[in-house]
Nucleic acid binder design. Structure first.
Lengths: 150, 150
DNA sequence: CCAGATATGATGCTATTGCAACTAATTGGA
DNA sequence: TCCAATTAGTTGCAATAGCATCATATCTGG
């Protein structure tokens, strides 16, 4: 990778940056439309699903799991709480922690959100076979690892 | 792809969505830091580079090329103009059009921006060989095509 | 036991982005 | 010719997201 010709070759090829950017923005629009009936925005669904997968969680744990700033997590949780999908409960052992649980409404909406996300994935991954998709995920993981220091 | 077992198999695998999201956000932070000395934000550099590549351009053409909303383009161009990197010139043949040109300062900063983008790409694509990277770009193009209707 | 250090989370500010609605300029049909 | 439709761009608003800072609660060393 430090050889001049290798760098030159990469210099002349297209970059993934613009594609990542465009895909992110268009997926956000798509997911917003899918989840609008449930009053869940594109900035909240990942927190809802993460809590559903591993309940209960603190905001700090959520931030680390999803690789987002803790203030982004705080705002997303505040919205999910206002919509009645998530409930906070102070940890009796340590009042600094607020454990996050799904409410009944939250438990009811999670499968519908999952279906919406599956629809988006099926639509966006059309024309990619399973082997290619596995490779795609692996490459995305590599890039993300390079960005976060693994 | 329409076979039930194929769908079932895709349902159980990881989705690219969260990776796209995390990569986008982290790349934005990285690029912002790289371009801060030039007072260019993560929301402006792609417009600058697109103008450099194909001068002159209208805002409409930029929006379609970069797949962004025309209002996003208008705001990015306003910032680049305020920083003295881009100049607007009304098309004498049709006053609705504003042709966009680089200024002298713009022409000077473009190579430095390109170098910063190359550094980001090299860092984020570490550990991916050329064949894999080509495949990666192809898959990203496919996903983006699925989102925009090709 | 108490003061400082540390951890969790909240608040204010800023940047990016898209949608709705608007203005201004051009074009085309009655 | 003139008015309606189209096109380019702007403005206001809202959502997402990160940084700096602050408040509160817990823990640790003297």
């Amino acid at each position: 990778m430090s050889e001049p010709w290798a760098l030159k070759s990469k210099d002349s090829s297209e970059s993934h940056g613009p594609y990542i950017s465009a895909i992110y923005r268009h997926m956000q629009v798509l997911i917003s439309a899918e989840l609008a009936p449930h009053r869940i925005g594109s900035g909240q669904y990942m927190f809802l699903m993460a809590i559903a997968q591993q309940e209960p969680l603190t905001q700090k744990a959520l931030s680390e799991k999803l690789l987002v700033d803790k203030t982004t997590t705080a705002k997303a949780i505040a919205k999910l709480e206002a919509e009645g999908y998530v409930r906070r409960e102070a940890d009796p052992a340590d009042q600094r922690f607020q454990l996050l649980y799904l409410t009944e409404a939250g438990r009811e909406v999670v499968p519908q959100v999952q279906e919406a996300l599956n629809r988006v994935r099926t639509k966006t991954a059309a024309g990619i076979d399973e082997a290619e998709y596995a490779m795609f995920i692996r490459l995305l993981k590599t890039v993300l690892g390079n960005l976060t220091g693994l």
